[in-house]
Design a protein around this nucleic acid. Sequence first.
DNA 1: GTCTTTGTTGGCAC
DNA 2: AGTGCCAACAAAGA
Length: 239
Amino acid sequence: MDQKIKEIAIEDTKVAATSPETIKDSLKGHKLTKAERIGKYLLLPTNTEHFLVMHFGMTGWLDYAKDEPPEYTKASFTFDNGYSLFFVNPRKLGRLHITDNIHAFCEQMEIGPDALAIREDDFLRKMKRKKGMLKSALMDQKFLSGIGNIYSDEILFQTGLHPKTKLSDLNEAHLGKLYIQMKEVLQVAIEHQADPKKMPGHFIIPRRKEGEPCPYCGGEVKKEKLSGRGFFYCPACQQ
DNA sequence: GTCTTTGTTGGCAC
DNA sequence: AGTGCCAACAAAGA
């Protein structure tokens, strides 16, 4: 927190959505003051007007250590105390951005309201206006941000709704339950460090394999595709 | 060697 | 305009 960034190395320019020069010029000599999150973006404000914004893509994490960069490190931010923050991103699908205005950034990137922050009345209003399939809506980052393939499956499993349910077929009770489960599933996942092995027994996430037993009814978990992406569900519990 | 994947984007079709 | 589907990107594990 109190440490100034002494050195910045962009080991792979592919992850630099903002030019490496701009990233360095904007951050060098300044401090990262806190960490926030909107949807799948990590926001790191500094003691100046600049923000460092990270997206991890499918796989990625941060490492804070005094060591050499871990394997797959794509960017390093070294502080005065000798420790470094390593942006590790094996599949190179993550991105680093610099912005001076988070609000404008979210508009430009079309980041919808965060799933954990949205109020129930806003959620209900938006869902009633949207068309198409339920799972697609939950995963639409412009519409609602933060939920991906795995967690949309879990939310739908806990709500007892089929992923391909048409939004037009949902009533007020369905939407209310969906809102509750969306918050619950995400909260529980965070409490368990998003580790499938630590998830509660009633979660379907550790059962993402065809033929696995449904935690509720013991029936077989099925796999299907939507927009080319596999999803898992229980045909007996999710109508 | 082949297939799949925790995400996003751009192109195309309807 | 809104929605669905696919390919592309990249690397690892089954």
